[in-house]
């Protein structure tokens, strides 16, 4: 075996991956799906903030986020124990508890990462067990000249911030703002000349969003109009 490959066991399956690979990536590459939101391929230090990609590793205490862990030779990994599933389901329930769960009214319908995870974890997209607690702020924040941000859909994964920070010659970038439950993604004031000058509307943040919390205002309005038209035509029938 060459030195730059590592062999490990995931859910009883032996896999061989290059040294230095993150465990989550290794699993995804080998067809083992682990729910995840905040991870993007190539991240050096993933935020490990969504807490969905938790796995158990034999000989180590507690569940660990697989996105932040490098593979090691002989590692024995479990991705689907009951305890892990319960924890993932709780995390998922918490994430959807801010949202209304009306997928048909969302632009990201059918390509939303949360829908995929819901299917995988056998969870409804509207939590019954927990209360529905929307964030204490407007549902749509129109801070950016042409991008809308939907605060209750946002899962605060931070992908948009990551991709924005990696855009070349764009000194401006997105960041978190606020605190605690009311943390949001912020363009930091569209009234300031800053946003218009620095943001090149490249759309990378919109593309990176797993749930459709960011969208071009124009697109969103067109989508809403389409919804209205559909509704009207259904009513006619």
């Amino acid at each position: 075996m060459s030195d730059d490959m590592v062999v490990l066991t995931v859910d009883g399956l032996e896999i061989k991956v290059p040294r230095g690979t993150k465990l989550l990536q290794a699993c995804l590459d080998n067809g083992i799906y682990i729910p995840n939101l905040c991870y993007l391929e190539g991240m050096e230090r993933p935020p490990s903030s969504c807490r969905l990609c938790l796995v158990e590793i034999e000989g180590r205490p507690g569940p660990v986020p697989s996105c932040s862990l490098e593979v090691e030779n002989g590692m024995v990994v479990h991705t689907s124990t009951d305890a892990l599933r319960r924890l993932q389901q709780t995390a998922f329930r918490l994430l959807v508890s801010t949202n209304s769960g009306k997928c048909s009214l969302c632009m990201a319908n059918k390509r939303c990462e949360m829908q995929r995870i819901a299917k995988f974890l056998h969870m409804p997209l509207r939590t019954k067990r927990l209360r529905h607690i929307p964030k204490d702020m407007p549902r749509i924040i129109e801070e950016h000249p042409c991008i809308d941000y939907e605060s209750n859909k946002c899962v605060l994964c931070g992908r948009c911030i990551y991709v924005c920070g990696r855009q070349e010659d764009a000194p401006f970038h997105l960041d978190f703002a606020g605190r605690g439950f009311n943390t949001v993604i912020s363009f930091f004031g569209s009234e300031l000349p800053g946003v218009a000058e620095y943001c090149r509307d490249c759309g990378a943040c919109i593309a990176a969003c797993p749930v459709g919390a960011l969208s071009y205002r124009e697109d969103r309005q067109r989508f809403l109009q389409q919804l209205e038209r559909n509704k009207a035509s259904r009513a006619r029938k």
């Binding site: 490990s48 903030s49 807490r51 709780t90 209360r131 607690i133 931070g158 605190r179």
Partner: peptide, 20 residues
């Protein structure tokens, strides 16, 4: 829950539910 940095799901949303 007020002082949570808002990064991870359990702390950000979980403590808010505890409070509720």
């Amino acid at each position: 829950q007020n002082e949570s940095c808002g990064k991870c799901t359990f702390c950000r949303v979980g403590t808010r539910h505890l409070l509720a």
